[in-house]
Design a protein around this nucleic acid. Structure first.
Length: 579
RNA sequence: GGUCCCGUGGUGCAGUUUGGAGUGCACGCCGCCCUGUCAAGGCGGAGGUCGCGGGUUCAAAUCCCGUCGGGACCGCCA
């Protein structure tokens, strides 16, 4: 005889008359007397009302098994809020399996509980419907991804967690080696090198739902450890990869929402930066950046005598933004790197009202008015600076003012293509790679590799691409370099000599000498995807045991100190923290 | 490295601007009553290092300095 015959939330009118046993936690109780009490029993499927007609000491969160007969509720006594509201379990025999202290916070979800307290008692928090729902959505996403990849011919390969540290990229988490004192393993930031080695190894199509670790500051969308769909395919180009990944994204979205997303649109990196001031534009709302630079050519206003002037239109912003709110926005813009924020209220006559109008010509005023299609009551916000700064600051300002919650329900997937190969030029005039040094340049820009000087390097495009959802970067990938000629050229430009290249990436370069197929790949963050599909603004809500913003775990108290003998065995001695 | 917000019985809040007795609200908890509730109801009760430390003051939850914890963001995250 099994302990349980049915789940609480699945009993229906069709079960009336059957004797059932349900197991779970005591949710709310409504005790009328020793002759009548209603016990709501909860498991992950929901709640069922059990009627008890004897004196029982049942408290919140007691774990019980209840055996009884399913019956229709009395006329007019059904509860539409419950899926099981038509029925109840009567003639109950209650077996207490575990008693419980009162929960440390309310089990109902009408009030938000401090996250620190939730995490300290996560095992209780996980019982709530929200976490039950989110973790099950996450599991479905994982499952849909696996199916999608396998149906496209990808093979799941596991790669090591204890690997060699490489200097590039994020800060590594490291693990001391007991057998090799003074040496350390690094935990993988991603399986990047290994998946490329798999391509050389003839795997053809690799995927893994991989745990990645990066020792960088935590955010709402960033944890130390996170999961990625990591994939790589041989004899594949950018379009192939985008199709493979899009299929996994669409399948997992459909598995959760029931609706298959439309074809995911593409946008070049340059267009994204110019229109939205971000390489991960949130296209759920407009408020696009409008270039006003030409209007201010030959201007008398000193603030606009700069490389680039762009503005955004805040519809109805004239009333929405009081003077102190504008001042606060100005301070934010300054903290983001701008010198200031120029603002104009659009008056009833279509006139512009702002501190800077007295320095501006009529043509200039009319020009920004028309360019932004301003209407009375709107607010115009302008940043003037270097183009890069203008796009960056205005992009952040746009989000600050107009961004809907990430969980508004709408799902705007977007591919960003043609990322620059280099993100900036360093002190010695040498460019710094935007992605990693194995990223294939855009074929049309190969010639520029030989001729570029200084800032011109930043115009070289790559075959790197990102997937964006509602303004969150879900993931990125690229076509990889597989020929020694181009790889040498890139290393030369980056100032990485042969010796250094061999030190850092020797095993990969060695591998490429033995017959490397052209290959390309991608990785996207499953936590972020699952969070948005769950309607959550924070990935901690879809992780069973997450860390706080300071990287601590209130439940286990990690990180902790080590005993001296433990340190000794590892050949470690602590440097006391400086005071 | 930086900016901002929060910390008050078990939980969620108000009180802090303008210093005056740990004052208040809701939920929970404990006890009693109650045979159709479903956020049950009624009556009674317990429960506080106002995060911590220092300072100002006759007097600090309240003002100042520091610190710890939580959160949002910039930097960082190839």
């Amino acid at each position: 005889m099994t302990m349980r015959t049915h789940y609480c939330g699945e009993l229906r009118s069709g079960d009336v008359g059957s004797e059932v046993t349900v197991c779970g936690w005591v949710d709310t109780r409504r005790v009328h007397s020793e002759h009548l009490a209603f016990i709501d029993l909860r498991d992950h499927t929901g709640i069922v009302q059990c009627v008890v007609d004897e004196k029982l000491d049942l408290r919140s969160e007691y774990v019980v098994a209840i055996t009884g007969t399913v019956r229709t509720r009395f006329e007019g006594k059904s509860n539409e809020k419950l899926q099981t509201g038509e029925i109840e379990i009567g003639d109950c025999e209650v077996q207490v399996l575990s008693v419980a202290e009162p929960p440390p916070f309310p089990m109902h979800e009408r009030t938000d509980v401090d996250e620190n307290i939730r995490l300290r008692h996560r095992y209780v928090d996980l019982r709530k419907p929200r976490m039950q729902k989110n973790l099950r959505i996450r599991a479905k996403v994982n499952s849909a991804i696996r199916s999608a990849m396998e149906k496209q011919g990808f093979v799941e390969i596991e790669t090591p967690m204890l690997i060699a540290s490489t200097p590039e990229g994020a800060r590594d988490f490291v693990v001391p080696s007991r057998l090799h004192p003074t040496n350390f393993y690094a935990l993988p930031q991603s399986p990047q090198i290994f998946k490329q080695l798999c391509m050389v190894g003839g795997i053809d199509r690799y995927y893994q739902i991989a745990r990645c670790l990066r020792d960088e500051d935590l955010r709402a969308d960033r944890q130390f450890e996170f999961m990625q769909l990591d994939m790589e395919a041989s004899f594949a180009n950018q379009e192939d990869i985008i199709n493979f990944v899009s299929e996994a994204i669409k399948d997992s979205t459909e598995a959760i929402t029931g609706l298959r997303p439309d074809e995911i649109p593409h946008m070049t990196w340059n267009e994204a930066m110019e229109r939205f001031g971000s390489d991960k534009p949130d296209t759920r709302f407009g408020m696009e950046l409008v270039d006003l630079t030409e209007i201010f050519e030959g201007t008398d206003a000193n603030v606009f005598k700069v490389d680039c002037v762009k503005g955004i239109l805040y519809e109805g912003g004239s009333d929405a933004l009081a003077r102190n709110a504008i001042d606060a926005l100005t301070e934010k813009c300054q903290s983001w790197g701008a010198r200031g924020l120029a603002w104009f209220r659009v008056g009833d006559e279509g006139n512009l009202d702002g501190a800077l109008t007295k320095f501006m010509s009529d043509d200039e005023i009319e020009g920004i008015h028309a360019s932004l299609s301003a209407q009375p009551g709107d607010m115009i916000l302008i940043i003037a600076d270097k183009r890069r700064t203008v796009n960056h600051v205005l992009g952040l300002l746009r989000l600050e003012i107009g961004r809907p919650p990430v969980n508004s329900g709408e799902l705007k997937y977007l591919w960003i293509t043609e990322f620059p190969l280099f993100e900036s030029v360093g002190d010695h005039g040498r460019p710094i790679p935007a992605h990693h040094p194995f990223t294939m340049p855009h074929l049309e820009d190969l010639e520029k590799l030989n001729s570029a000087q200084g800032e011109e390097y930043l115009e070289i495009r790559s075959q790197a691409y990102d997937l964006v959802l509602n303004g969150w970067e879900l993931g990125s990938g690229s076509v990889r370099i597989h020929t020694p000629e181009i790889q040498s050229k890139i290393f030369e430009i980056l100032g990485i000599g042969e010796v250094e290249a061999n030190e850092k990436f020797g095993f990969l370069l060695d591998a490429f000498r033995y017959g490397a197929p052209p290959h390309a790949g991608f990785a996207f963050g499953i936590d972020r995807l699952a969070a948005i599909l769950s309607g959550e603004e924070n990935i901690r809500e879809i992780i069973a045991f997450p860390k706080t913003q300071s990287g601590a775990d209130p439940l286990t108290n990690a990180p902790t100190q080590l005993e001296n003998n433990h340190l000794e065995e590892l050949g470690l001695r602590l440097i006391p923290p400086s005071t």
